[in-house]
Design a protein around this nucleic acid. Structure first.
Lengths: 202, 202
DNA sequence: GGCAAAAAGTGCAATCGGTCCACTAATTGC
DNA sequence: GCAATTAGTGGACCGATTGCACTTTTTGCC
């Protein structure tokens, strides 16, 4: 009468359990650090069995990177639905600047970022989460250029773009860094002859 | 009297033990596949305890990639001791073509390559073995260009070059692929407008 | 030669991530 | 109301890795 069960009670309970696990995990990780928290600790804190925990998350690292929006769709869309006359690289640069940077520099994520940065296994995992999309992005680029899906230049470009999060992690000025990397991808490597201009502070 | 102990008996025995472990491991891996061989299997085949095994190798994956010559030194040397007038990217291209390709395409390594290619965890490990040198190569490039060590363009170039093994793994024509990637790094991305010219065979 | 420290190796228990299995209980579709 | 799904349980289990207390070998040195 009040709330029609568009989603059943079961699914709601399932989601609640999943959320309880993720919350407990993140809390414990932030309290004690990633490696000082065991799977059993998390399961107990969320009041579930370890079996249940692994039915919701494929592994320990996945507990950290919970809500995974689909970056892949965004990437492919950035290539496919770009304004006429714009190059692929420019489209990707805009997408990176508009979509990734706000997340990376979100002030509320400070302690989360610190957690990831201080845990090598999490850094690697985060990196894999990006490079995992290499094939898909590469295919989109190849389609756009009208060449074969296994074109090596397309694959390289996709990979290099997806390397950007890893390359620019924890930098003072991420925006400038992203621009510089895209400059390299657009024009190729140019030896930066100037002996370190002061571009910090003012 | 006959052989002066330039290296003591201890070190020789240690090296022998290490070699015995590595040999046993590789043999078993090739016979049964990586995940169907346990650490205890290897330890028993080499007639040592698992404790001893882990004193020689930091983990299971390291047993596969034993003799690690220092690629890092070669990379840095390729940048530093390059012919006058040659650009960094060209020097790196030559080094990659001269040093990596022969190893990757060595006919005796066929089964070894098959082992790595068929085992995801080994692929990831191999990739990390390369990207691990990003900081060192980046520093060499930055030194060469006379800019700060944390210059992002240098870091990006280093990273992109070290991505090449992962990008070109298992390709029909690795040499052409390497050339194409370096072309991207030299001149920037250029949309390959031609609809898949036949550039294989002749 | 003899001896003490360093270091290699041992054996074993324990931890930890992750899986398996047989089972209970809630939810759902009909 | 009932049968099929499905979430969750709990505990045994596996394999990688570590820690500890101990033996044996080698080495450096007097």
């Amino acid at each position: 009468m009040d709330t029609p069960p568009v989603v059943g009670r079961r699914e709601r309970k399932k989601a609640a359990t999943r959320q309880a696990i993720a919350d407990a995990a993140l809390r414990l990780f932030l309290e004690r650090g990633y490696d000082r928290v065991s799977i059993r600790d998390i399961a107990e804190a969320a009041d579930v069995s370890t079996t249940t925990l692994f039915k919701h998350f494929p592994g320990k690292e996945a507990l950290v990177f919970d809500q995974e929006e689909d970056r892949e769709a965004g990437l492919i869309a950035a290539v496919r639905r770009r304004p006429a006359g714009q190059g692929v690289v420019d489209a990707l640069r805009e997408h990176v600047l508009a979509s990734w940077l706000p997340v990376a520099t979100h002030p509320l994520r400070t302690e989360f970022t610190a957690l990831v940065d201080s845990t090598p296994v999490l850094q690697e995992y985060a990196e894999r989460m990006w490079t995992r999309h290499t094939a898909a992005l590469s295919a989109a680029i190849a389609d756009d250029a009208g060449v074969s899906h296994d074109d090596i230049a397309c694959r390289a470009l996709a990979r290099f773009v997806l390397d950007i999060p890893a390359l620019t992690r924890g930098l003072e000025d991420p925006r400038a860094a992203v621009e510089e990397v895209f400059d390299l991808l657009t024009h190729g490597w140019r030896p930066p002859g100037r002996p370190q201009q002061d571009h910090r502070g003012d």
